[in-house]
Amino acid sequence: MTFFEAVFQLDFLLYAFVGALLASVACGIVGSYVVVRRIGYMAGGIAHAVLGGMGLAYFLGQPPMSGALLSALAAALLISWVNHCASQQEDTIISALWAVGMATGILFIARTPGYNVDLMSYLFGNILMIAPQDLLFIALLDTAILALTLLLYRQLLLVCFDPEFAVIRGLRVSVLQTLLLCLIALTVVILIQIVGLILVIALLTLPAATARLFVTSLSGMMILATLIGSIATVAGLALSFHFDLPAGALTALLCGSLYLLSMLIRRP
């Protein structure tokens, strides 16, 4: 049975396939902002801090994804506040958030009674576990990201390109920057289910960085990055199906290989 035959015969594979495509939309749009704004480190901080919220939700018997969503947004607001008020210590505070979030999550999971099978899937993702309600959740987050980006495309472009000029033009730059971090938080929550929180950074930076080598506009970068993201996630899933290897790690490796290959092609 080939991968594409299996997708239409096995429900869990179909859900994974749809999940991969939906996640690529957020990854392409928001990843482009992360790359041009050079805030991969902030995105990494948000992704890792999320384990704290997931662990707490798990401990309290609540759905881990609701904990993830709340803690991702809280981390985004905190980073944005630090960026605004104490930018000299920004690096240190993101590092602290990164480590403290993970440590808190691990402690909560350790204290939760029962068999802790979920820790590894939070860290490295398990796309095959995606259920229809997860797909609905991802689709809702995608819609929010898409709507905000369409509404504020020009403003966010200027804030990324030249924040000082944006201030002079009367844009509310700190609000827009906070919004951008919140969009990253939503994307992190989506991508955690696909590749896990450790590999989120691969999907959030590599497809967009690859796309940037071939385009002359931010919108073009978003579309191409979405395409590259869907190729990498679907191919990762297919390879995982054929060779019985973890899909998240394969996806991250494919993203890295595509980036390296593109660098070689685009270099004169």
Binding site: V36, Q155, S217, L218
Partner: peptide, 17 residues
Amino acid sequence: SAFPITVRQTVLQGRLG
């Protein structure tokens, strides 16, 4: 200097706000 943006898109920024 690697920001993906065209000349016209850059000049249009002056019309924002």
